[in-house]
């Protein structure tokens, strides 16, 4: 499912992963200085539209993934209203004798939307970038050592295996423990067989990689060149325009 999205033939999927990563950091940074409601809202709507249209991600799925963040965002509103640092003067109405001020609602909504923007940009990155192309780009363009890059790939392959193994360990222990559900304290004990298994797997994989000639050095040929292409120019241009309009112009 995720892999299928990440390798879809759409604009965002073809954009160089390093650029997407850079844009992600830029947006995160710029958002720090924003306290109004309208700009985060505009960024959020724009991001959702871009992911849906230029990344061909089904809108329903995207909104579904954003829903938990929306609840999280709403908690900011609630916090600002109930425990404000400073209660605003424009009281709109009362809830159980508690004054609800416009200023506090505004701050809360702004913070909540900021969380949603972070979430939506992260989704833009995660849903349209395959791990392999990310790692290849980082190795080729950002000089990440291949030993770390390929190590991360190997670890990424282990994740589903570990999850499956944990389920088996839980069940095995439940059988031994006469059907008792494992308690929190026992999760710690379950980590022992899980880690023992993981270490052994990692050792085996390391041996297999070495026997295939992997020495972790940068001296290797490149079957796929992760070069910047025309698409990347368009993406960069669009992104600069977006940052200028939303964040830079209002400041001047």
């Amino acid at each position: 499912m995720l892999e299928e999205l990440q390798t879809r033939n759409a604009f965002l999927q073809h954009v160089h992963p390093t650029l997407k990563l850079l844009s992600l950091f830029t947006v995160f940074f710029c958002m720090i200085f924003v306290y109004d409601i309208w700009r985060p809202l505009a960024v959020l709507l724009l991001t959702v539209a871009v992911v849906a249209f230029l990344g061909k991600v089904p809108l329903k799925l995207l909104l579904g993934l954003l829903l938990p963040f929306a609840l999280f965002g709403f908690s900011f509103v609630w916090l600002q209203v109930v425990f404000p640092e400073e209660r605003g003067s424009t009281v709109l109405f009362y809830v159980f004798h508690m004054p609800v001020a416009l200023e506090n609602i505004q701050t809360g909504v702004s913070l909540g939307l900021r969380a949603m923007v972070y979430a939506s940009w992260s989704l833009l990155f995660v849903l349209t970038t395959s791990p392999v192309s990310l790692v290849m780009s980082l190795i080729q363009k950002w000089h990440m050592p291949p030993s770390i890059g390929y190590g991360m790939m190997a670890a990424y392959r282990f994740l589903p295996q570990l999850r499956e193994e944990l389920a088996v360990i839980r069940r095995a222990r439940q059988i031994r423990g006469m059907g008792k559900k494992p308690k929190v304290r026992e999760w710690k004990e379950m980590a022992v067989p899980l880690m023992a298994g993981a270490v052994r797997k990692a050792e085996r994989t390391a041996l297999a990689m070495e026997s295939k000639g992997f020495d972790g050095s940068r001296q290797r040929t490149r079957y796929v060149q992760m070069n910047y292409k025309k698409m990347d120019v368009w993406f960069t241009a669009g992104f600069i325009l977006f940052i200028t309009v939303i964040f830079l112009l209002p400041m001047s």
Partner: peptide, 23 residues
């Protein structure tokens, strides 16, 4: 535990790149 890449093609490419086989 003998592989480090997700697909068959990527694994073979990984192996041959290690040995500096020309692209």
């Amino acid at each position: 535990t003998q592989f480090c890449m997700p697909t068959v093609r990527e694994e073979l490419v990984f192996t041959l790149e290690n040995l500096r086989v020309p692209a």
